[in-house]
Simulated assay, not measured.
Amino acid sequence: MKFPCRLDKFVSNVGELPRTKVKSLIKKGNVAVNGLICKKNEQQITASDDITLNDKPLKYLGKRYFMLNKPQGYVCANHDELHPTVFDLLDEPNLKDFHIAGRLDIDTTGLVLITNDGDWSHQITSPKKQKFKTYLVETKEIITEEALFDLRQGVALHNEKQLTRPAQAEALGKYALRLSICEGKYHQVKRMLAAVENHVVELHRENIGGIELDNDLEAGQYRPLTEHEIRIINAI
Rank of each mutant, 00 (worst) to 15 (best):
58 L>C: 05
98 F>I: 13
210 G>H: 00
130 Q>I: 04
187 H>K: 11
37 I>Y: 11
187 H>M: 07
31 V>I: 15
139 T>V: 02
79 H>N: 14
23 K>G: 03
12 S>R: 04
101 A>E: 06
150 D>W: 11
161 K>L: 00
18 P>G: 05
144 T>D: 01
230 I>K: 15
191 R>E: 06
106 I>D: 04
121 S>K: 06
215 N>G: 08
74 Y>K: 13
78 N>G: 07
70 K>M: 12
35 G>S: 01
20 T>H: 15
213 L>W: 07
118 G>L: 12
188 Q>M: 10
168 Q>E: 13
19 R>H: 02
44 Q>L: 14
227 E>F: 06
153 Q>E: 12
192 M>A: 01
210 G>T: 00
162 Q>W: 04
174 K>L: 09
102 G>Y: 11
90 L>W: 08
9 K>L: 03
171 A>Y: 00
57 P>Y: 01
163 L>T: 07
20 T>N: 15
95 L>I: 09
221 Q>L: 08
201 V>L: 14
171 A>T: 02
35 G>E: 09
128 K>L: 07
157 L>D: 03
51 I>S: 09
213 L>C: 12
184 G>S: 07
229 E>T: 06
117 D>Y: 00
196 V>A: 03
179 L>V: 09
134 T>L: 06
58 L>M: 03
82 L>E: 10
145 E>K: 14
186 Y>Q: 14
102 G>K: 09
194 A>I: 01
138 E>R: 10
153 Q>Y: 08
220 G>W: 09
80 D>R: 06
1 M>E: 05
110 G>Q: 00
111 L>W: 14
25 L>Y: 01
24 S>N: 08
170 E>F: 08
77 A>H: 13
89 L>I: 12
173 G>F: 05
156 A>Q: 13
164 T>R: 10
223 R>E: 06
139 T>E: 13
204 H>S: 12
159 N>D: 15
174 K>A: 04
124 I>G: 01
43 Q>N: 09
159 N>V: 02
17 L>M: 15
32 A>R: 14
107 D>E: 08
67 M>H: 14
149 F>S: 12
87 F>E: 10
61 L>Y: 06
184 G>V: 04
162 Q>S: 10
221 Q>N: 15
193 L>W: 07
162 Q>R: 08
126 S>R: 08
41 N>S: 15
9 K>W: 02
98 F>E: 07
96 K>Y: 11
86 V>Q: 10
200 V>F: 12
113 L>P: 15
68 L>I: 06
154 G>F: 10
192 M>P: 03
196 V>F: 12
220 G>S: 03
82 L>I: 06
3 F>P: 09
63 K>L: 03
24 S>Q: 10
